[in-house]
Design a protein around this nucleic acid. Structure first.
Lengths: 178, 178
DNA sequence: TTATCCGGAATGAACGTTCATTCCTGAGGT
DNA sequence: ACCTCAGGAATGAACGTTCATTCCGGATAA
């Protein structure tokens, strides 16, 4: 993960990965059929980790706004605390591998999309959020969060608790029914 | 541009690019010193094109909101009309080449960032937009726009004029001082 | 003729993957 | 307690492929 997050898929040769792992080049292939599957499997693991982290203290009984703030702030904090994981996930999203995943997520079955989809669908039903397609609501929520997380990790800005909250609240202003 | 937009930098070999251009493999090097410079030069051209398109009908005398809607809608429309250019720009942004560009843009001198920076700075001075760092305002504005453009181009959603306007207005709701 | 430009085969570096070989461990026999 | 050995695991040199770049013979223009 470190190598791929820092250097990208195409600049992280299997030989280097093996070296960093302290094993021989061929040993990797006893555990992963090929590079693509290694990448996908690692993505799966990180995905589960993120989801578990977001679920901590998540209360489905609270208001839509409260739950959205919880998820948004949790996500931002997680990425700031785990910058390598964020960079890895970003790489994965901007790759052919990630395209298939996004397609699934956009059109119905999505691993952690479920969490947010449920929230937005409930928000639509109660007219708490703007009457827009789910895809657009996702974009309004995650677009800024990912961008801001990247800017923080690259050092363009320093996010503290206050700024995190302000940012997520601003996202909510974009989503909520005014 | 077509090849790189569709296949990515690493799957668009110079030989293919030459073929598509109808010239021999070696001929490219009479016009571009190497692949990296070709990529950078193309980015520069597209960048200027986008900026020119945004400037069409842009009136610096109108209100902040009006100008923001103009720029946001213009950008979305441009990307929808020129999906290959959008994909190319995205590739560039998510590459080592693009990192340097983002750094410049975030910390001061930015080619078309100027346009938006001026707008946001004026908005801050007049308290028309939330009192947040420029970086965050950028994220709130462009994060959703890029995400939504990508979703449209990948076919996850169909953006028409109405939806474009609604999306940009929702972005503005996130940015404006409530 | 001479100068300039073009093409595409040649080059060498880098990569993912394979495979013949070596190493290690622990069960079984003495 | 000691030795033997079978078999799973690890190794890293070697292979085939792909790619960016170079180079030189020939075409074109002056």
């Amino acid at each position: 993960m470190e190598l791929i997050a820092e250097r990208g898929f195409h600049n992280a040769p299997m030989s280097l990965i093996a070296g960093q792992a302290g094993v021989g080049a061929g040993t990797i292939y006893r555990y992963f059929e090929n590079k693509e599957l290694l990448i996908a499997e690692l993505f799966g693991e990180l995905h589960i980790k993120v989801r578990a982290s977001l679920l901590e203290g998540y209360d489905p009984e609270k208001t839509i706004e409260t739950r959205f703030l919880h998820l948004g702030r949790g996500m931002l904090r997680y990425f700031i605390d785990n910058p390598l994981e964020f960079r890895y996930l970003e790489q994965y999203h901007n790759s052919p591998y990630g395209a298939a995943f996004r397609r699934d997520n956009a059109l119905g079955k999505g691993a952690d999309g479920d969490l947010f989809r449920r929230l937005f669908e409930e928000g639509l039903a109660r007219q708490a959020v703007k009457n827009l397609p789910l895809t657009v609501l996702f974009a309004l929520a995650f677009g800024p969060l990912f961008t801001v997380a990247r800017d923080h990790i690259f050092g363009f800005i320093k996010l503290d608790e206050i700024l995190i909250t302000q940012t997520v609240k601003a996202c909510w202003d974009g989503i909520r029914n005014i």
